[in-house]
Simulated assay, not measured.
Amino acid sequence: MATRDLERLGQHLDWNLLRTFMVIVQEQGVTRAATRLCLTQPAVSQALKRLEDQLGRTLIERGQGRFRVTEAGEVIYAEVLEIYGNISRFGVLVRDIREEISGHIRILLASRIHSHLFDRMLERFHATHPQVTFRLDVMASADVHTAIQQKTGSLGICLMREPPPLVEHALFMRQLFRFYCGPRHPLFGRRDLSLNDLRGEKFVSFTSDQIGGVLSPLTVFRAQEGIESRVVGASVNLEEVRRMIVAGLGIGPLPQHVAERDVRDGLLWPLPPEEGVAPVDIHLLWNPAAKMNRAERAFIELCRAAVEAIPLDRRFDAEAVDAWIGRQFEAA
């Protein structure tokens, strides 16, 4: 492409075409991209064609059952992510200049993250920096990955099967999942149960409890043990999975430390195996390429310091957490 053509392209390229292309890649298809963008499928296909025509390159190879981002498409996608992230940060950058050392922190979390460590960090950080504002949004782990890639969130706390590209991560805590049933279920209160008693029972779980999902260890365990029960309910939200279990729709998995209070209150009953089903890791995610305000940088550094200093097996230990938090903020 000649220099004059490149200059003309830079002046006239439509950002909406780039955004549409970005969503097509993220959704791995035109149909799903059209749904997310609230557009028709032909409109999305036409936008992709216009962008490819303007660039003079094929960005996505499509056919029956085939979807592949070309080498040129991968290059453009990486650049579009950078552009999108920078544009989305304009408000943060301006606010940071105006507010000096204060700032806004947006934290994206998977549902029902129970962590004394996270709670104490929020508490002490706010007490030390009262001008900092927070926004906590709950969403599916896959959406957290995308948002951190696009730099629309400061920090993600979520499940992760494989590290998403362009982000850094640290293991925050390890949850042990176990099967439970509610008080209306015929297995409730029984202590003489084995895994064999669970076979054939109706099942509720998370939408990511499938091969390739972030909760695939649960799927593998059920397959290995022959617990291929009919799934009667599913949700991306832990609270809604818990609701279905308590309501008696079926047995289902929950993190053991989350379910402890419900077990004590008689709302849930733990089922075999006693050693639990599978450990599932919760990770911290952040984007090192994001232009962050001082509050964001300070909070992420606090989180990183916590996971480096507190052993993994003691991050549910309130005494160990409180002692570390006290040392971190004693001079403040």
Rank of each mutant, 00 (worst) to 15 (best):
residue 312 L to S: 10
residue 123 E to K: 08
residue 103 G to F: 09
residue 298 A to E: 15
residue 116 H to Q: 14
residue 53 D to G: 03
residue 288 P to W: 10
residue 163 P to Q: 13
residue 207 T to A: 11
residue 6 L to K: 13
residue 182 G to K: 03
residue 150 Q to N: 14
residue 63 G to I: 10
residue 41 Q to Y: 01
residue 294 R to C: 09
residue 318 A to Y: 03
residue 187 L to C: 02
residue 52 E to Q: 13
residue 64 Q to W: 09
residue 164 P to S: 09
residue 152 T to Y: 06
residue 284 L to F: 06
residue 91 G to H: 11
residue 264 R to P: 03
residue 94 V to Q: 13
residue 172 F to E: 06
residue 70 T to R: 03
residue 178 R to H: 11
residue 208 S to Q: 15
residue 38 C to K: 12
residue 205 S to W: 03
residue 58 T to E: 15
residue 290 A to I: 06
residue 20 T to V: 06
residue 138 V to L: 13
residue 83 I to P: 01
residue 62 R to A: 05
residue 147 A to L: 06
residue 249 L to R: 12
residue 181 C to M: 11
residue 152 T to S: 14
residue 36 R to W: 04
residue 324 W to N: 07
residue 25 V to T: 08
residue 284 L to R: 00
residue 59 L to A: 00
residue 183 P to L: 06
residue 156 G to E: 10
residue 186 P to E: 09
residue 53 D to L: 09
residue 278 A to F: 09
residue 62 R to D: 03
residue 172 F to Y: 14
residue 235 S to A: 12
residue 46 Q to V: 05
residue 273 P to G: 04
residue 159 L to E: 13
residue 231 V to S: 10
residue 201 E to G: 03
residue 34 A to W: 00
residue 20 T to E: 00
residue 91 G to L: 11
residue 160 M to W: 05
residue 120 R to M: 14
residue 168 E to H: 13
residue 53 D to E: 14
residue 80 V to D: 02
residue 236 V to W: 06
residue 6 L to C: 07
residue 156 G to I: 10
residue 287 N to H: 13
residue 41 Q to T: 13
residue 300 I to Y: 06
residue 64 Q to T: 10
residue 84 Y to M: 08
residue 286 W to E: 00
residue 244 M to I: 05
residue 216 S to V: 03
residue 109 L to Q: 15
residue 151 K to P: 00
residue 165 P to Q: 13
residue 256 Q to P: 02
residue 315 R to P: 05
residue 220 V to R: 11
residue 50 R to I: 02
residue 91 G to C: 06
residue 238 L to P: 01
residue 254 L to Y: 05
residue 273 P to I: 04
residue 314 R to C: 07
residue 109 L to Y: 08
residue 265 D to H: 12
residue 164 P to E: 06
residue 292 M to D: 01
residue 85 G to I: 02
residue 81 L to Y: 02
residue 107 I to W: 05
residue 332 A to M: 08
residue 265 D to T: 07
residue 281 D to S: 11
residue 145 H to L: 01
residue 167 V to Q: 00
residue 192 D to Q: 02
residue 22 M to W: 07
residue 57 R to C: 03
residue 229 S to E: 03
residue 223 A to F: 09
residue 114 H to D: 14
residue 32 R to F: 05
residue 149 Q to D: 07
residue 265 D to E: 15
residue 28 Q to E: 13
residue 331 A to Y: 07
residue 283 H to L: 12
residue 46 Q to I: 04
residue 95 R to G: 08
residue 164 P to I: 10
residue 240 E to F: 08
residue 331 A to H: 12
residue 260 E to V: 11
residue 148 I to L: 14
residue 40 T to F: 01
residue 135 R to V: 10
residue 95 R to F: 02
residue 130 P to M: 08
residue 58 T to F: 01
residue 118 F to W: 11
residue 296 E to L: 04
residue 319 E to T: 14
residue 313 D to S: 14
residue 47 A to G: 00
residue 148 I to W: 07
residue 77 Y to C: 08
residue 320 A to Y: 00
residue 270 P to L: 10
residue 66 R to F: 10
residue 204 V to C: 12
residue 209 D to R: 01
residue 97 I to D: 07
residue 213 G to Y: 08
residue 312 L to W: 01
residue 311 P to A: 10
residue 273 P to R: 09
residue 242 R to D: 02
residue 96 D to W: 08
residue 140 A to K: 09
residue 190 R to N: 07
residue 116 H to T: 15
residue 143 D to T: 10
residue 267 L to H: 13
residue 128 T to F: 03
residue 102 S to G: 07
